[in-house]
Amino acid sequence: KEQQNAFYEILHLPNLTEEQRNGFIQSLKDDPSVSKEILAEAKKLNDAQA
């Protein structure tokens, strides 16, 4: 469930490039146990690119 939530949120971050988004999603698939950390990174990058 946590992985699904992170997946959904990353898909809807407006400021990520397609490449960045795909990278985060691939990381989620590779290691779902760190989905919280991956989501935090994605949000940080999204904010930095706002």
Rank of each mutant, 00 (worst) to 15 (best):
S35A: 13
L45I: 09
E37Q: 13
N46Y: 01
F7Q: 15
A42M: 02
N15Y: 08
A6R: 05
K29D: 09
P14G: 08
P14Q: 15
F24L: 13
I25F: 11
A50E: 10
F7Y: 14
H12V: 11
E9H: 10
D30N: 05
S35R: 04
A48N: 12
K36H: 06
A40L: 09
K36G: 14
K29W: 13
R21F: 04
E2K: 01
S35V: 13
I10P: 01
E18D: 05
Q49S: 10
E37Y: 09
I10C: 01
E19G: 02
Q3T: 06
L13I: 03
E41N: 14
T17I: 03
T17H: 04
L16C: 00
N15C: 05
I38E: 01
V34T: 14
D31N: 13
L13K: 01
E9W: 08
Q49Y: 09
Q49H: 07
S35P: 06
N46D: 02
A6K: 05
Q4A: 11
L13W: 04
N46I: 01
L45N: 05
E18F: 09
E19H: 11
K1C: 08
K36A: 14
E2Q: 03
L11W: 06
I38W: 04
A6T: 11
S35F: 15
R21D: 00
E18Y: 06
A50T: 14
N46A: 09
L11D: 07
D47Y: 07
L39R: 04
L39F: 03
Q49E: 07
A6L: 13
Q26H: 10
E37D: 05
L28W: 05
G23S: 08
S27K: 04
L16G: 00
N5K: 10
Y8F: 06
I25M: 09
G23N: 12
A48I: 15
P32M: 13
E2D: 14
H12A: 15
E2M: 01
Q20S: 03
S27H: 13
Q49P: 05
D31V: 09
S35H: 13
L16N: 00
L11Q: 09
P32H: 07
K1G: 15
R21C: 04
L28Q: 01
V34F: 13
Q20H: 01
N15Q: 02
S35Q: 07
S27A: 09
L16D: 00
